[in-house]
């Protein structure tokens, strides 16, 4: 069955290659989809002032509030942070951002700089062990945004893609192929 489908796709591709006008149309179509997605992402970045407006929860350290695979919407346009806020922060020189809750806030009333300490709801100890060596406090700039909304399970796809990187190429390849070969109407 898979061979049938593949043969069909190859046949469609060959036909498409012969028809340059149709080919141009399909390529533009694909480009439109890619750029729309990019525009939505960049638009969200602008509105939320956050470098990653949507994140996927990768660990169980905030259970039962958030589980692996939940997605969180971040907002970073408000400077002020409070204890109890769930925030996403990034430690310098480390790739993966962390979603945890603020435990302590010390605000300097002259410079308006804050020293923050965070902790995962499901962790026994605070996050000092996760910070850079010698780092005791987070600053406002370490925070990518405050979690303002959640949607369940949607991030499972991302987790699957992360765990099995091959899947990424298969999925993207398949999507590209189908967009190219599918016909409107």
């Amino acid at each position: 069955m898979i061979k049938d489908i593949l043969d069909k796709q190859v046949f469609e591709l060959k036909k498409l290659w012969a028809n340059k006008r149709q080919l141009t149309f399909q390529v533009l179509n694909l480009a439109m989809i890619v750029f729309s997605a990019l525009m939505i992402w960049k638009g969200l970045m602008f509105v939320t002032q956050s470098e990653s407006p949507v994140v996927v929860v990768l660990s169980g350290s905030m259970e039962p509030a958030f589980q692996r695979g939940d997605i969180l919407f971040l907002h970073n346009a408000v400077r002020e942070v409070h204890v109890g806020d769930v925030v996403v922060f990034k430690i310098k020189d480390r790739d993966i951002p962390i979603v945890h809750r603020i435990l302590k806030v010390h605000l300097d009333t002259d410079t308006f700089q804050v020293d923050l300490l965070t902790k995962g709801d499901n962790n026994r100890v605070d996050d000092r062990g996760l910070y850079a060596p010698g780092q005791l406090w987070l600053n406002r700039d370490d925070i990518l945004g405050k979690a303002v909304g959640t949607l369940r399970y949607v991030g499972m796809v991302t987790i699957a893609l992360n765990d099995y990187p091959v899947l990424k190429y298969v999925l993207v390849g398949m999507m590209g192929l189908f967009v190219l070969t599918s016909k409107e109407g």
Partner: peptide
């Protein structure tokens, strides 16, 4: 002096 402090003392889910 020069600091506003908020500290969580206890929490419960």
């Amino acid at each position: 002096e020069g600091r506003n402090n908020q500290i969580v003392l206890w929490d419960k889910i």
